[in-house]
Design a protein around this nucleic acid. Structure first.
Lengths: 229, 229
DNA sequence: CAGTGTCGGATTGTCCGACAATCTGACACG
DNA sequence: CGTGTCAGATTGTCGGACAATCCGACACTG
């Protein structure tokens, strides 16, 4: 008998230069060192980071694919900025995508449901601990993502990710200045409780209300935002 | 008199080289000229298409971002297998997006509703005339697109476009070999009639049935095993 | 002065050639 | 039969180059 067939192991490849550039840009974005709307010039980044323009271009492509930046032909790449109108549009989109997840709750894989519960737990823990605000935002988004994942569709999840990427920056700002963490926790706990209850209509209503309220907070955060605190 | 303030016009930028490469690769993929799992070598594509390797690399990045191909570090990019599972996934996604349009019918802008009727007319005309099969597919997709547009959300429309881009060529193949044009016309006319009737539930059911049937045709056209759950 | 044509610098899109790092398969070796 | 080694193929990154395009300033016209 062969001893152990070896447990499944996986080795993460050493980060490529492109990955490191993307990572650094992401960090600067979320830290607020690069504000919304700022153009990301290829030559400037090339000089600043000591890599070739080809590599910078590829990194910018990744950022654009993630929705954190936008590319306009012959005009360059600039950091995604949310207009008020866009915020409402995002709400409409999120309502559609996440409602699909809510409707799928009953027929969803048990693991998918378990992942929603786990995501809720992680979010509550992070929000209660009041750690790293970035971590709160990440777990918050992860919860909403898990709801979309209830549909079991990788494409829907991908579409949702595109939307989340767009609002991640604004949401991070909201989470950073939000004083009502307990209220947020309660809202999400209620949402999941409604899901578990099986009352789809009520859940949908609560979801829509929650998303619209979140949009309000985002608009507020975006407006009364001179710069550093 | 103060002439018209000019209606909103938009000009589509001429396709970049990268776009044309991506388009050509997509075509080859759906045409079966490149089978699933085939590695896409940069040098080979460079030679075959008469463009530089940098450009090919960027195009491959787009394909990977779209999920049509996979990149493994230092090993290259290879075509993902368009499994039957993917087709079902697309149906789920389309049902969610287009159902949102159906639900929005009552509250939609009158122009948006008018555009659905116009799209239906164009599709029926093209299908009846049996013209250019490409035109049939275009008007067909335009109709479904118009339904999503009922939501009034540019983002939802953008997400739908991403999905349509992925299936456009497969759908063209279906439209080309489909002998049941009259049936197709009837289906879509019924769908819009249900919309007009205001019976949302019935419309949603018809939509789902239509999309699932379309998926069957697509699987058939792609010669895939229709069984996957 | 409003509107229009023109010019130059800045920036992107694409191309080319190069090289190190890494992967793959074959082959020799114990 | 398993292991070490090596050459070729392929990718990742670099640097430089040039045309196309965009942007702002400026001169011109009526």
């Amino acid at each position: 008998m062969p001893a152990d067939p070896l447990p499944p192991l996986h080795l993460s490849a050493p980060a490529s230069t492109v990955d490191r550039i993307v990572e650094e840009l992401r960090r600067a974005l979320f830290a607020g060192e690069i504000t919304a709307g700022t153009p990301l010039r290829e030559q400037a980044l090339t000089d600043a980071m000591g890599v070739s323009r080809s590599t910078v271009r590829e990194a910018l492509g990744v950022l654009v694919a993630e929705g954190l930046a936008v590319r306009e032909p012959h005009r360059g790449v600039h950091v995604t900025s949310l207009e008020a109108e866009a915020v409402h549009d995002v709400v409409t989109t999120r309502v559609v995508l996440e409602s699909a997840g809510v409707r799928a709750w009953a027929d969803a894989e048990p693991e998918a449901r378990a992942r929603v519960r786990a995501a809720l737990g992680a979010f509550v823990a992070a929000a209660r601990a009041g750690d790293d605000p970035g971590r709160v935002t990440a777990t918050h988004l992860a919860l909403h993502r898990a709801i979309v994942a209830l549909t079991g569709s990788s494409r829907l999840l991908g579409l949702a990710d595109a939307v989340y990427a767009e609002i991640r920056l604004a949401l991070a700002k909201v989470d950073r200045m939000r004083r009502d963490a307990p209220q947020q926790i309660a809202n999400h706990e209620e949402l999941v409780a409604l899901l578990e209850s099986g009352d789809t209509a009520a859940t949908l209503a609560a979801l829509r209300a929650h998303l619209e309220e979140a949009a309000e907070s985002m608009l507020l955060a975006l407006e009364l935002d001179p710069d550093a605190d």
